[in-house]
Amino acid sequence: MLELRLVQGSLLKKVLEAIKDLVNDANFDCSATGFSLQAMDSSHVALVALLLRNEGFEHYRCDRNISMGMNLGNMNKMLKCAGNDDIITLKADDGSDTVTFMFESPNQDKIADFEMKLMDIDSEHLGIPEAEYHAIVRMPSAEFARICKDLSSIGDTVVISVTKEGVKFSTKGDIGTANIVCRQNTTVDKPEEATVIEMKEPVSLTFALRYMNSFAKATPLSHTVTISLSSELPVVVEYKIEDMGYVRFYLAPKIEE
């Protein structure tokens, strides 16, 4: 028996909006500690890891570990039918091949049940080793989204370089080049508006902007984004979900041959 009641149902709607274009089908893993997902995009260039911890749910019952294969496009269709203020409850019986999404309006005057078919998905679970990153940049998520969008109108790839001067996002295309430098800035009114750069070593890596723009769809989940970079490792683009967990995107760099 599985029963997860999320008062802030809009969080789940935002999570699906953030990952549905990157991954078609995925297994949601439910255990006593939380609701999680790990999946790669179809070309195995990017990986998404989601964690929603049990304590973030108003009610969390998961009698035994369960893996539920879902088509994220179909799941998103169902969650779009929930109002932004609705309470969302996920329910599944042991051995069932369906999951039920229950949507309750805040004043309980409308209750909807949507039952979705589960699917068998052969997915490969990858071990993500703990890594010491050369540089970690925390910045407003909207700023990062803006930079990725702007640069993708000039070029297809972004070079992210961290030096003691700051973090530089560069691209080049047929029409010209673009460089955007963000310096550390902690003298802001609100902590979420700060840009904080922790650098152990300078680092410079090249990534496909198409993926960065896909990750930026998680912007509504968090005011800030954390970008962790090390040479010869996938970049981690993390959106923390307040009091609950995170969505982390890993993207393999482009490599000089």
Partner: peptide, 14 residues
């Protein structure tokens, strides 16, 4: 020449 890396060459199956 620049080639797109594959995530599975960094993280191994468990």
């Amino acid at each position: 020449d620049v080639k797109q890396g594959n995530i599975m060459s960094f993280f191994k199956k468990v």
